[in-house]
Amino acid sequence: MRNLILFIRRFFNLILFLLLEILCIILIGNTNTVQGNDIVSSANTIAGIVYKKHSDVLYYFGLRNMNDSLLYENARLRNQLEKYKYTDLLKDSIVHLQIGNNDTSKIHTTKYYDFIYRTARVINNSTNATDNYITINRGSKDGISKNMAVISSTGIVGRVEHVSAHYASIFSVLSSKHKVSAKLKNGTNGFVIWDEKDPDILTMIDVPQQINVKQGDSIYTNFSQYYPPDILIGVVQKVEMIKKNALQQIYLKSSTDFHNLQYVYVIENTMASEKKQLEELNNKK
């Protein structure tokens, strides 16, 4: 007995070493079984907490990429939606037969508006000048050209004014010279301008007095040279009657938050030039 204790004391380190190594081998052996050992795995609480915190921190660094991908996703979905929105089913018109197209479901379908949505990030923005411009990080190389409409996810922003190879400046709705053709919910037309005072408030003019406008009504864009139809401009905040010409003035709260504009969509109307050419023929006569 005494010899055994002496032996253990003498080779204590070696015995401990061998015991620990055997323990490790048992652990390794257990890992590959079905039961596994949950203690030595990242499923345990402490390792879980550390990894959770770590991914929480890393999550913030990934937000920009995530934002971008959501934006592209939105643009893609909007593009898909356009296909269904602006097609006209002329069921009995033989004129629109597309020769050489075997897809029978599309034979009577004529597209007359075709919009392409492109995403862009705002890199410079102003709201306090008389004519406000916004700069975006897309230019002619990305397919942006003059007079394309620009909207945010919540509503109208403006239209493209100048284009360079990689940047474009947008003529914001917040400008004394910008006039947007607008319509009320019931179809009454008018124009939306900006009175150069408050970047949150737009003014709609040329609405006849007999039209009943309530606070909270939405105002949308009319189809015009620049803008696609039915894009939200703002909601009615106050209505003012003008006595001398039987018109009323509507003050809108703009639906886009111009102070905090980060991402926008640039909309290309692929039929715009064709329409313009046609209308110029009318003017010549």
Partner: peptide
């Protein structure tokens, strides 16, 4: 052994790190 087991826990390697570490 403690260090090896800690690393094993995070890396999901059973006891390989612990074995080498001991």
């Amino acid at each position: 052994f403690t260090l090896g087991i800690t690393i094993d826990t995070f890396m999901n390697t059973g006891g390989i790190h612990a074995f080498a570490m001991v």
